[in-house]
């Protein structure tokens, strides 16, 4: 592996956010392709971070800092990757359902998905079913993630899935759900495509859903 790619993956691991754009431009200046920078630099670093996180040696704030570093580099690489037709990992659309303002878990899922290499759009909290459907049409995500903390609001996930069907976009997107009271049984019951019990496994699930796990 070239030295600059190694520097990039180390910078991702160390979360050197400020250095990422310069390093990325240096690598491009050395005629390394955007695809190689992504796969052999950024993702190599994130894979290492992922393994260390699972082993309990690296912690959430450090993972998020690494993901943020990767995003910096991606701001340079994205147009080039699109130009050269490289298949990206995919797009994840997120939101906390109508009536629920608890969103710390959903925010974590977003950052973990970014770290895994997804393009993430976060609609925020208290999101109406219709707003989810509109965003699916506009953003065309591969995966839609919904969260709820309350037993009263988790049922809105079912309503949202029904609205996606009425809007004719249900089969265009995989739906994953999560939140403290949510279970696999509930996911099956309301016709979601999957449930994850925490943010890291949500990112894993999203990867499975796009066939890239």
């Amino acid at each position: 592996m070239s030295e600059i790619l190694e520097q990039i993956s180390t910078a991702v691991i160390e979360g050197e956010v400020e250095e990422m754009v310069d390093l990325t431009e240096d690598a491009l200046g050395d005629d390394i392709s955007a695809e190689d920078i992504l796969n052999k630099g950024l993702m190599a670093g994130m894979d290492y971070v992922g393994v260390e996180f699972k082993a309990g040696n690296v912690f959430v704030p450090e993972v998020l800092r690494s993901a943020r570093a990767m995003q910096e580099s991606m701001s340079v690489l994205k147009p080039l990757l699109e130009e050269s037709g490289v298949q990206m990992l995919g797009k994840v659309l997120l939101g906390t359902v109508k009536g629920d303002l608890h969103d710390i878990g959903k925010n974590l899922v977003g950052m973990m998905c970014e770290g895994a290499g997804f393009e993430v759009k976060d609609l925020g909290k208290d999101i109406a079913p219709e707003a989810f459907a509109d965003a699916v049409k506009e953003f065309e995500p591969d995966v839609l993630g919904m969260s709820a903390l309350l037993t009263t609001t988790m049922r809105v996930m079912e309503t949202t899935i029904n609205v996606l069907e009425e809007a004719g976009v249900r089969d265009k997107v995989k739906v994953m759900i999560g939140g403290a009271p949510v279970t696999q049984a509930f996911s099956d019951q309301i016709g979601a495509d999957g449930y994850a019990s925490n943010a890291a496994s949500a990112a894993e699930l999203a990867k499975q859903m796009v066939g890239r796990a």
Partner: peptide, 8 residues
């Protein structure tokens, strides 16, 4: 505290 591994 938020457990920074288990996220609970």
């Amino acid at each position: 505290v938020m457990d920074m591994s288990a996220m609970i």
